[in-house]
């Protein structure tokens, strides 16, 4: 489902990804393991299109989204990501964070609010937190909120 061929990514003169090949089947879970600073986050950001690789190919569901040094336009792929640093929007309340995708896509407010409560329950957060801001949560609670924001959309 996700296929990567010969991916290269440099920062200035520092080689981070040096010819990565990867093939992940649909419906499987994969883990990428490696020492600190070896390029795991960089690889994932390349797949999501947040970083542009220098060379190689990336395809998702048999569509090449990255080829010949360029990302295809309109290759919007729906992939949730739990960022290492969390990346909760700190000017929005927790429920607005969790339901951000739905709010952006014009779902009604009541639905988004209740959906957020459900999704927060799935990660073990009570509905007391929905109206708080990210800075009012503990580190672990923030991570759980990030998960439900990245995962359930």
């Amino acid at each position: 489902m996700i296929k990567i061929e010969n991916l290269h990514k440099y920062f200035e003169n520092k080689k981070v990804l040096n010819g990565v090949n990867l093939d992940i089947e649909e419906g499987t879970s994969s883990v990428i393991i490696g020492g600190s600073g070896t390029g795991k986050s960089v690889l994932i950001k390349c797949i999501l299109g947040l970083l542009t690789p220098e060379e190689g190919k990336i395809s998702i569901k048999n569509n090449f989204i990255f080829e010949n040094g360029k990302f295809k336009k309109n290759s919007k792929i729906k992939i949730g990501m739990l960022f290492q640093g969390g990346a909760l929007f700190d000017s929005l309340r927790i429920w607005q964070n969790v339901s951000f995708y739905n709010i952006q896509n014009g779902k009604n407010k009541k639905f988004c609010f209740e959906d957020a409560i459900l999704n927060l329950e799935k990660v073990g957060l009570s509905k007391d937190v929905v109206n708080l801001y990210p800075s009012e949560l503990s580190g672990g609670m923030q991570k759980k909120s990030c998960f439900s924001k990245g995962y359930f959309h």
């Binding site: 999501l48 299109g49 290492q84 640093g85 969390g86 990346a87 700190d90 951000f100 995708y101 952006q104």
Partner: peptide, 15 residues
């Protein structure tokens, strides 16, 4: 927002 990856997060949520 940039250095805390919030801008990257926006992109992954197709905003």
């Amino acid at each position: 927002m940039k250095v805390t990856e919030q801008i990257d997060a926006l992109k992954t949520l197709s905003a």
